[in-house]
Amino acid sequence: MKKVLILIFVLVIILIFSNEITIYTYDSFVSGIGQKVIPIFEKMYGCKVNLLSFGDAGAVLSRLILEKQEPKADVVIGLDQALLEKAIDYDILEKYTPININLLKYKELYNEYGTPYDYGSIAIVYNKEVVKNPPKSFEDLLKPEYKGKIVVEDPRTSSTGLSFLLWTIAVYKEKYLDFWKKFKNNILSITPGWDEAFEMLESGEADIMVSYATDGAYSFYYYNSIKYVPIILSEGAFVQVEYASIIKNTKNKELAKRFLEFLLMDFFQKEVPLNQWMFPVTNVELPEAFKYVPEIDKILEIDASIYEDLERILKEWAKVVIGG
């Protein structure tokens, strides 16, 4: 009986809704998890999904802003907390709460403009062959023994770098610049993006970088060894949450809503760990590799008003660190 009902439900949906939906997202979604889950969604609703990517999530948001008058996308995947705030400011998103939102493990991830689909923590990653006494806290990062050993991504050009800056704000509140004034003496270089920082670690130039908590799991999964070990500093974790939202004035609203609900289903959530290298937001089982992800004991929160103030923060940061 239940199966028949589902079948009828699906048939009705196919008949009612238009059968094409355009989704904007970042590149690694298309080449990764997208390949696994999109065909399932297409089959479920008998529709065609145009999954398009234009670089990183920041580039995607720029594009959405430029297309605001005549949007081409129905759904955007991949805005984090900071980008979501910007998108709300630009008034390009539509409010929606999925009917299966109760699957969400952490209620605090909820946002009326975006459906959270994964989250992960920024971490400090060190080369365990060289760093015998790794830092455990932000205060440790200031120790003279790490002088010239740490590489950080530029928050003006990299989302990883921006998250790290926000992490320091979450820890030190309005005193974050005092931390940076001391910390800059230990920084070897500030790179435009994650790739270049990783190259520094690989070439042996730097021993410590800002990266993600799942790095160890990733390297165990792909290379069967862990040379670069992630740590979450003892002050608490800063978590990056990724959201999917419906674009305002979309013509395919119903299908877009179904897609957001789909993101919370097991079909999608169970693919999150090994494709996105993030944590699922519902109760699905974690793969073995994830035992190499450090435990998150405490999640640090920052005030949403910080996101409104990014311009001032980045300028202050640049003044203190770059000097210009």
């Binding site: 720029s62 003006r156 921006l162 270089s189 980045l314 660190v321």
Partner: peptide, 16 residues
């Protein structure tokens, strides 16, 4: 860490 160009600022204003 000391140097930055106009292009970096342009990037920051558009993408961040």
């Amino acid at each position: 860490i000391k140097y930055s160009t106009i292009e970096v600022s342009i990037y920051m204003y558009t993408r961040i």
